[in-house]
Each structure stands twice: as structure tokens, then as C-alpha cells.
Computed example of a mutant assay.
Amino acid sequence: METAKSTSYKLISRVKDNRFDVDKLHDYCLLLQIGIRDIQICVTDTKDNSCLLVEDFSLLDIKTVNARLKVLASLFENHHLLKAGFWDSIKLSLKSHKFSLVPTSHFIPESISEYLKLNCVVNPNVEGQYYYQHKSSNVVNAFASDKRLVNWIQSLYPAKEITILHQGSALIEAVLGQRAQEGKGVYCILDRNVLHVFVSQDNQLHYYNQFSIKSSQELLKYVMLVFKEFNLDQRTQPVVFWGTLSEKGESLVLLRKYIRNVSLGKKPSFLKFNYMFDEIPDHHHIDLFSMHLCD
């Protein structure tokens, strides 16, 4: 456990495979997912698609973007792996509510600011504009995030071309990778106080949005709004949930009063997990793990 006022970060959980070999980093992919007040780290073996390390940190006393960068710098400086530069590959996922999904056929990189203007206000002084091309779904995720953070991460690994993506892109890959079912599929991810909702059908994405929530009642409200928009049947429509909620927690208990078929998601099949990862609930970290699918 790491927690100290001087560093202002706290280790929430860590699981490490005993097969992890620091001399084989050249075979490993480093996955970094960074939010306003958290960071998740995962290491996967590119040779056999196995998960070797998962760490979840909370960033404390974050009130400004500069404060977040200082805390992250402290965490990286004290971490035994993060400053290493000889990974096989590195991927950076950014949690941001500033995004816009654009059909590939209509996407022009020079027009990202115009796409984002439809959904949010971007401050060009502090936010950079990025995009991730989904190869399987013919959609581009254009998004804005702290450019100082991105530039700093890139400066740590000058010999690597880092894949930069939006948290939603990893989740889109997770949703579209689910086994096809008749009719529409509804998938929800609760990431602390942010609810992501997806609707897909025939491996095509029909809807994605995220909502800031403060209560189980708000979670129910937004899920029901999506049910109403797509005219879904509360008695029969399956809903799969991943994220920071529990089987007997308030959110699912309330949701099941209105929607009959609600279940928790499973660990992804595209990664191999040794027995020590059994301590991580199956429905946790789907966004982190699904970065593995993003090239």
C-alpha cells in the first residue's frame, strides 16, 4: 500500500502475475488509463495475450490540471516500472467527457474542432485535440484532453510511438466484441461517478454517451432515458453492467425494480488471466483491459 501526503496518491489495488519478468519488458505492452483523479496501469504479454499486472491508484487533493501533473510525476518517479523505456508498445487512454463520434467516411482530421464544437467547449490553451480510428466499426472518436499531460507522457518514452485514445474507444471495442444476440444490446459501465451507456446491434454501434451521476436514482434515470429513446422492453431487454458496482449494491437493486434482465459483465476472453486475478471482480476494469484491442 502506498499512501503519503508528500506524494498525494494512494494505491487502491495491485495484482501481479508471478510470471512477470522485468527482463522481458520488450515483449510487454504497457497500458495507461488516466482520469482526473485516478490512474490505472496494466501490463500484457504480447506473445500470448496474457495479463501480467493490474494497478489502480487514486490521485488525492487534485484541484487543477497542474496539480494532477505533479502528482503523476511523483507517482512515475517512485514507481519501479513506469520509467522504463523498452516496452514492446505503449497505449494511453484518457478519460474525458469532451468527445464526438464521427463516421469514418465523413471524418477530416483538420476539422476536429468543428466536430467537438457540437458537443462541448474546448480550451485550446490547455486542451489538445486527438482522434482514434476504429477499424471494425467505421467510426472515429475525436476528443479533447490535457495536452500537457499527453506531451509529458510522450516525453517519457521518446523512442516509442504511443497509441493515444479516449476511454470510450476502449469501451466501444469491448461492446462490439460481445457475442452477437438477437435485437439490440445495452451495455453500461459505471466508472466511479461517470456512467457510460452503449446500444449496439449486429456488431454496429447505435448509441454511446456518458453521464455524470451522484446517486443510484440518477443512474436509473439515464438508463431509462435510453430505454425510452430506443423503445426497449423493460421486461425482456438484457442489460450488461461493468464497473464500480456490486451485485447486491444499491444501484443494481434499484435498477432491477424497473428492468428485469440486468447482469454483471465478465472478464474479457481476449486476455488470459492467471488464478491470482480471481481477486479482481469479473466486471471490473473492462475499459483498461479492452485497450488491448486498440492499435
Score class of each variant (00 low, 15 high):
Y157E: 03
Y258L: 04
G35S: 10
A170P: 03
S269C: 10
R192V: 14
V43S: 07
N203T: 14
S169E: 05
F277I: 05
N151G: 10
V186W: 01
L60P: 04
M224P: 02
E55P: 02
H206D: 12
D233E: 11
I259A: 03
E77S: 15
T244V: 12
C294N: 03
L245Q: 02
S169D: 10
L171F: 04
S200R: 07
N261E: 11
G35V: 03
F289T: 02
V197G: 02
V54R: 07
L25F: 02
I189N: 13
P103L: 02
K10F: 13
L165E: 06
D23K: 14
E173Y: 10
K221V: 07
S169A: 14
F76K: 09
A4Y: 11
P103I: 03
L82P: 05
S155A: 10
W87D: 00
L219W: 06
E161M: 08
N141A: 13
R179T: 14
E110F: 00
L245T: 09
F143C: 03
N138C: 08
E279P: 09
L72Y: 03
A180P: 05
C51P: 04
A170R: 01
Y115C: 05
S169C: 09
C294E: 08
E161K: 14
R37F: 10
S96W: 04
K47I: 13
L60H: 07
I90L: 08
N141F: 03
Q33E: 15
L59A: 06
N119F: 12
D88A: 10
S145Q: 09
I286Y: 05
C120R: 07
N123D: 15
K267H: 10
D88Y: 01
C294I: 05
A174I: 00
R179A: 10
I286Q: 12
A67I: 06
I112W: 07
K95H: 13
L69W: 07
V102D: 00
L195S: 00
Q181F: 07
W242M: 06
L171V: 00
I112V: 13
P281Y: 08
L225M: 12
C188E: 00
V197K: 00
N18P: 11
S100T: 02
F227R: 04
V194P: 06
V126A: 12
K5E: 15
I172H: 02
A142H: 01
N261W: 05
E127K: 03
G249I: 09
V223N: 05
F241V: 03
C294T: 06
L195G: 02
E55K: 11
N66G: 15
N49K: 11
N125Q: 13
E127W: 03
